[in-house]
């Protein structure tokens, strides 16, 4: 076996070994379809929103990085600003039952009222299915999908990976940037970043 064949075989072996990682949604690819129940009792299906921009926000109300954006009012401001411009905003709870950030429909509704949050809906994903479909690693990881159903941004909410409230006002918000640039018909400059925050508390999470 010559060297190039060995490389090919090796690469194939490695790719085959990690289907979970390479099947996750990527920028430039079609956003994987999902349907889920929301805390308001309704069901939502992603493909019903073709023709609109969709923002996915991974949420865990116990995570200090998420709390930075809610206690400062930043997340609610973004939700109001962008849903006001026709964007569909899904807050997604992928924490497994018993893990930090898990909430029943009633608990999540209370939280939304208390925080004056304004997403289109808060989707309950206790099995982590949507989280794994998008390869969500942290809260608050953010994904932006364009009206054609293509992922145009995946990563951090902004460029300040800290838990400090003061950092919110001096941060560059990647979600707003992607939406503004795409809506203006421009190329989205920053399409993928490291999604800072707390690890998503899937059923198998120990960290």
């Amino acid at each position: 076996m010559n060297r190039s064949n060995r490389y090919t075989l090796l690469a194939a072996l490695v790719l085959g070994a990690i289907p979970l990682l390479i099947s996750a949604a990527k920028v430039g690819d079609a956003a994987p379809e999902f349907s889920a129940s929301a805390s308001n009792g309704k069901s939502f299906r992603l493909s019903d929103y073709r023709g609109k921009y969709v923002v996915l926000e991974w949420h865990n109300n116990g995570c200090p990085y998420v709390q930075k954006h809610y206690n400062s009012g930043n997340m609610q401001r973004l939700q109001k600003q962008w849903t006001g411009r026709g964007v569909v905003w899904f807050t997604i709870l992928s924490s497994a039952p018993g893990k930090q950030g898990y909430a029943t429909a009633g608990e999540e509704n209370d939280y939304l009222v208390k925080m004056q949050a304004a997403p289109t809906a808060a989707l309950l994903d206790p099995t982590g299915e949507i989280g794994h479909l998008y390869g969500a690693k942290t809260s608050p990881q953010m994904v932006v999908i364009n009206p054609q159903g293509i992922v145009i941004y995946d990563g951090a909410i902004d460029d300040k990976p800290t838990t400090d409230l003061q950092d919110v006002s001096r941060a560059t918000n990647y979600v707003s940037l992607a939406l503004e640039q795409s809506m203006a018909g421009k190329q989205v400059e920053t399409v993928a970043t490291r999604p800072y925050g707390c690890s998503v508390k899937y059923a198998d999470s120990a960290y």
């Binding site: 990682l21 390869g135 690890s199 198998d204």
Partner: peptide, 9 residues
């Protein structure tokens, strides 16, 4: 390396 199958710190 700290973590699970899908998230490693």
């Amino acid at each position: 390396r700290l973590g699970t199958s899908s998230i490693v710190d």
